[in-house]
Design a protein around this nucleic acid. Sequence first.
DNA 1: ATGGTGGAAGGTCCA
Length: 256
Amino acid sequence: MKIASWNVNSLRVRLPQVLDWLEKSDVDILAIQETKVEDCSFPINDITDAGFFCDYIGQKTYNGVTTISKIPPKESIKLINNEEQEQKRFLLTRYGEDLSVLNLYVVNGHEVGSDKYEYKLDWLKKIKKHIENDLKKTKYYVVLGDFNIAPNDEDIYDPEAWKDRILCSKKERHALEEILDLGFTDSFRIFDQDKELYSWWDYRTGAFRRNRGLRIDLILSNKALSDKCTSSYIDIMPRENERPSDHAPVVSVFDI
DNA sequence: ATGGTGGAAGGTCCA
């Protein structure tokens, strides 16, 4: 089973690219972030017409997540710790008897020390708690999405310039570690990878052309799933498109 | 260099 994550920065703008990539990549499950579309305007017909099932939760202008799949969802959970969320960033979908897929659009945080930064750290704590309480419900468990955190210095094009800045600060990395400590593995790092592989490049200053990127889009797998992981990669081709998202899709393949 | 670009919305916020 091939599982992917992609922050598309507006589903309506990127829908043709998403449908094209679904066909080319042959992924079974694609977790999308930043759909920026309310549920009443969600392009459900375009997705079902292409032969996919779809779970989604969105809002106007900001945030929004959807998980597209070849197999039908069995259960959908949209509340974090049973609490209604103003910002639509969380979507937990189960498939069959064995698989939970938690699609996250982690808070950006704006700047270290800001209110948004504190909100990010607080939000991540809530996520950790939810996962902790849910983790044993299925054999296979994947937490994936735009984490807005670069796990290590090797995930940053210029670690010195980014030291202690947003997306790279110690507290953010610690919050990610706490989730990993529940028994997850960053599936990209199960394998030896080439250097300087990233998943996000700023739209400005020709960052993609110069490969000034960060790896902030992650697929975390629990032990049962990590043991079945056969490859993990970033597909930078969609970032070469006209009117691209600023993120590229990340992919992991599991022998399940 | 404290800018730059892109999306949603129709002024300005967010990333």
